[in-house]
Amino acid sequence: MDVTSIGWLTLPLAILGGAIRVSTPFIFVSIGELITEKSGRINLGLEGTLMLGAMAGYGVSYLSGSPWLGVLAAGLAGTAFGLVHGLLCSVKRVNDTAIGISLIVLGTGLAFFFGKPLIEPKAPALPSISLGFWSSVPQVRAASDVNALFFVGILLAFAVYVFLNRTGWGLMLRTVGDSEDAARALGFPVLRVRILATMAGGFLAGIGGSFLSLSYPGSWSEGLSSGQGIMAVALVIFARWRSINALGASLLFGGAGALGPALQGVGVTGYYYLFNAAPYILTLAIMVASTSRAAPFADAPGELKLHR
C-alpha cells in the first residue's frame, strides 16, 4: 500500500500519535504538580525540574547504557529540587510562587551548564511498544509506536486517584492542603507532609523530563521543554485537581502540541509557527474559560494561594 491509500486519515493519525508522544511528559508533570498542590503549595519550578530531569536522564543513560537508570536519575534529581523548594517554603513568610520562579531559572541554568557535553553523544533511548503490528500502513505503524512511559503514566493517574481517595495518607495529604487549622488540630505534621508532597511532585516532573530527552529519537538540547512545566500548572487547574481529569487534559494539550508537526507532515506548511503556538493559545483559552470572578476556583485546595 502506498501513503495515499489512507487519504485524509493521515492527519488524525499523526495527531493521535503525536498527542500520545507529547502528552507523556504532561501526564507526569501535571500529576506531580497535582500532588504538590493538593498539599497546599504551588511549585512553579517544575519547568526547571523538567529540564534538569531531561539532562540528568540523558547523561546517566549515556554513561550507564541503561535508559531506565536514566529515568531513575532524572526522578532523583527532581526529588532533590522538590526538597529544596519544600524546605525553602517552610521558612516563615517565604512565598512559594517566588521560590518556584527562581527554581525555573536555577534548574534550566544547571541543566544547560551540565548538559553542554551531552549535546553530541548519543544515549540509548527508552523502548517503544509497537501496537501497530497488525497494519502494514506505515502511518498507522508510526502512530502506534507508543513509548513505555506513556503506559506508566496512565497507571500513575489511576494510582494517584486511589491514593487520594482510598488511603489514610491520601486523606492526610488532602487535609493538610485544604485546611491547615484542621491538620494542626489533628496533629498532622503539616510541614513534613508538604515537603514530601513537593518531593513527590519533583520526582514525577523529573521523570517527565527524562521522557523529553530519552524517547525516540532521543537527544539532549536546550530547547526541549518549551514551557511544558508552566503549562502543567494551568493543566492542573483545568483538570480541577483530579488525576484522571489530568490524564485527559494532558492528551488534549498533547494533541494541541502535535497539531503543528502533523500538519507539516501532510504538507500544510503555511502558518507553521502559528499552529505550533496552539498549546499556548489553548492554555490561555482554558484559563479564561475556567476562571470567573463569581466562582474563583471552587475545587481548589483551600490552602492554595492562587486566588487571594
Binding site: 482510598r166 488511603t167 489514610g168 495518607w169 486523606l171 492526610m172 488532602r174 487535609t175 485544604d178 485546611s179 487549622d181 484542621a182 488540630a185 489533628l186 475545587d299 485546595p301 483551600g302
Partner: peptide, 23 residues
C-alpha cells in the same frame, strides 16, 4: 476544623487515632 472539601465520613476517618492504610 472539618476539612471543607471532604465528606463527613472522610473527616471522621481522617481524624481517627490511626490512619488506615487502605479504606
Amino acid at each position: 476544623t472539618l476539612v471543607p472539601s471532604m465528606t463527613v465520613a472522610q473527616n471522621l476517618v481522617v481524624s481517627g487515632a490511626r490512619l488506615p492504610a487502605y479504606i
